[in-house]
Structures are given as C-alpha cells and as structure tokens.
Design a protein around this nucleic acid. Sequence first.
DNA 1: GCGAGATAGTCTCACTTGCAACTATCTAAA
DNA 2: TTTAGATAGTTGCAAGTGAGACTATCTCGC
Lengths: 158, 158
Amino acid sequence: MAKLDLFKFVPFRLNRLGAEVSGALSSEYRARYGLDIPEWRVMATLGFRDEACSAQYISQCTRTHKSTISRAVTSLLERELIERVENADDRREFRLAMTPKGRALYEELIPRLLRREQEILACLTAQERKEFARLLGKIEDSLNLVQASRPMSEAEAY
Amino acid sequence: MAKLDLFKFVPFRLNRLGAEVSGALSSEYRARYGLDIPEWRVMATLGFRDEACSAQYISQCTRTHKSTISRAVTSLLERELIERVENADDRREFRLAMTPKGRALYEELIPRLLRREQEILACLTAQERKEFARLLGKIEDSLNLVQASRPMSEAEAY
DNA sequence: GCGAGATAGTCTCACTTGCAACTATCTAAA
DNA sequence: TTTAGATAGTTGCAAGTGAGACTATCTCGC
C-alpha cells in the first residue's frame, strides 16, 4: 500500500522551510522599513549591481512575475527610494537605480538581514553551512535556476 | 559599503527553490487530479495516518492556516474524496478520513510524486541526499518546525 | 452547576499575485 | 519602407489566502 510521509518529503519540506524563513526575514524589512517581498527583491537587485538595470532584468533574475515587479517599482518610485531614467537606446525600457535615500535604507537593512541569516544557520557548523550551500547549488543547477543564481551578463540579460 | 548577493543569500534561495519545486510537483496533482496545494496537504495527512483526524490537526502539522484547510476540506467533501463524522466526545470537531474513492486517488498519486522527488534529487548522490535531509532537519529543528516534522502524538495534537 | 476563557470550524473582508490583454516601441525580413 | 512579430512595461480581472470576527461547544475554577 503506497504511503508518503509528508514530513520526510523533500518538496514539502523545502516549501515549508522557504515560507518559514521568508516570514522570519520579512519582519525585518516589512515592519521596520515598510518593504514587501517584491519591493525588497528590487532593492536587493539594484543594490548588488552597481549599474542601473531594467525591470525586466530584475524580473528574470529574481524569478518574479513582471507585473509584480512593475507594481513594486511603482511603489518604490513613489517613496523615492529608486528613480528611473529613459533609455535612449530603447525607449520601451527604463533604467532603474537607487536614490541616495534608497541607498541609505539599503545600507541599514543589509547588515540586519545578514545577521538574521546567520541566526537561522547558526544551528549548523561552518562545514555544514558550506555543504548545505553546495547541495542547494547542485539542486538549483539541475532545475535550471542557474542563470538566476548569479548576476547575468548583459548578453544574457537583454 | 554593505552589499548582499541575493543569489548567495540562503533565505532567498530557499524561498525560490521551495516555490520552484512546489510548482513542478503541483502539475502532478493539479493538472491530473484537480487538487490544489491545500487539498493535497489534507490528502497527504489523511493518507499517512491511518486513523481519522481533525481539520485542526491537519492545519497544525502542515503549518497551513485553518481557514485554508477548511476550504480544502469543503471542496474534498464535495468531490467525495474524504468524509467526516461527528466526534461524539467533542461536538465542535469532525473526524476526517478518506473515502475509498479518495484512497484510490491517493494510491495512484503517491508513486508519481515520489518519482518526481527522485527526479529532483537525482542530481545528488545517495550520500548527498542523506546529508541534505539531515541538514534540512537541523534547520527545521532550530526553527521549531519540529513538532510538525513527524506525526504528532494525540497528546500533542489535541 | 455557572460563568469566563479556550478551542473547532466557518465565513467575510482585504490584500496579494498571476494571467492575459493592451500600448508603445523595437527588430527583421520582404 | 512596410509590415509582422517580438519585447518592455502597465493595468484590469479573477483566484487564492491570511486575519480576524463569529457561532457552537468544551473546560476549568468558583
């Protein structure tokens, strides 16, 4: 008789753990800075890359639907955390970049998030953390999340 | 200057991977059997435990909001995949169990899902899979997902 | 027993999000 | 050049979900 222990079933465990960890972190950027997850992803992408980039690019590398990114961008523009300039080469798209105000928020937020990540992973030894990251990477690769697991080159991104 | 590489940030990676893997699996139970995620979680819980159990119990051990479980239960009752009986000892709650029809669907679905899980984890060696599961378990424990990581005893569950 | 507080389950409301249509713009081929 | 198809971004709509109110029932202390 077929049986499946949900609590040993890796897809369920990943989904639950992902939701749990996201929830734990979102208190950091939601309650304190009023950012929701899509907004945070926009900020994170802009903060990591130094050059301005398009909404499309952010959508692709965070694997978030373009309409969701569009709404996040609108909100961040209103709050003046990011700004956008027309791209003369292609007038369909806009180049997005953080404002000084946005950058300041980002600088303040990042150490907090890294600390939270540390706390969550504190139950693992240094060696285990490294191994866990490696195994995650192998699974990501096999699911073709690869291209999103690092900043894409211009050629890939556009 | 603070910086965070989103693609090396474990909370983001877990969230993305969880969503991706869930999405891959849901094609199995959504397209083929018309189950959504909450419905599948109800079936999975009932299928693993042999005794009937309450909606509350399912809610707790799958970490799914009670209103979401309530809706899933309603839908499964309409489709006659599960049935419920009043609990004479406590008339607030209902005991849920699969019907033969539901059991048949479950028996058919489980091998498919286990095969999918295998495919997803095929990129890891047997040793790596074991290690990955162990590390997941340590993180789950530290986040107090413990009580949900195995069927709860009656004493804990009620 | 009786009343206060806890609990099971349902329902309404507000919010989020994905989908798909739409506009504007670009590219490539006839 | 013209036109068909692709692409960037926005928006309306529908579906799903969590919060929290609500009803019915139970439990515990008085």
